[in-house]
Design a protein around this nucleic acid. Structure first.
Lengths: 110, 110
DNA sequence: TGTCGATACCTCGGTAATCTACAATAAGAC
DNA sequence: GTCTTATTGTAGATTACCGAGGTATCGACA
């Protein structure tokens, strides 16, 4: 089934980069945080999250490092690279441009 | 190649429904209008447009009827059905919810 | 001790939407 | 007559995401 979708396609990278930019965090916490900050509107499934993280790491936008969470478990902490910071700015700008443009269309009156 | 993407994935249906809601129009003009109203930010490629129109028609949200354009050519004019109007409201609501949620995340400060 | 729930990671297969590129037809201009 | 523009269409590839599964560890608790 298609369905209302928990995300807008193509925005996951942006959400992850932005969340990691605030502070290096591990995957599980990134998902929780996005969900929480969005007021439970955005849901990040694990089947989307981890492939996305690997994708971003492979692009050189994130760098992983193992560490311990506040609950004492091992986890992979992701941090933004310099290229990642650039990419984040890029994606932010692109999101603004496009979402504004969509706003123009959907609020268009007769 | 990565895609700068002319659209945000999943928003094309919304854009089409909204445009057709203003006045029944044919595919070519729908694409032109979206592009124009968005200030040339959104580009609707033909390879996306026509499949989308057929999709929407098949869902029962649009109804097609052949007619003549202002330039005297034959074209398929699409009009919103009652179900289409409902779907448009639905997609509008969904877009607002999700884009607002993304706004919360991307504007989140440390 | 054993199990259970939550945390934390991962992958595979399918689906759906979009893009690129191509192709066909018809009107009007010149 | 040819050229441009309008107008519709399809095929193939790509890509992101989702659903469903799997593994391991920790703390609680019976």
């Amino acid at each position: 089934m298609s369905r209302p979708s928990d995300l807008i396609q193509g925005t996951l990278d942006l959400l992850i980069l932005k969340t990691v930019a605030l502070e290096p965090t591990h995957g599980w916490a990134i998902a929780k945080r996005i969900q929480q900050v969005s007021g439970d509107v955005l849901q990040v499934n694990q089947g989307s999250l981890y492939p996305a993280l690997h994708r971003l790491e492979q692009q050189g936008w994130l760098k992983a490092q193992t560490g311990r969470t506040s609950t004492g478990r091992e986890a992979k902490f992701y941090a933004l690279t310099a290229a990642g910071r650039k990419q984040l700015a890029h994606e932010l700008e692109s999101w603004d441009r496009l979402s504004t443009a969509i706003g123009l269309v959907v609020r268009e009156a007769e």
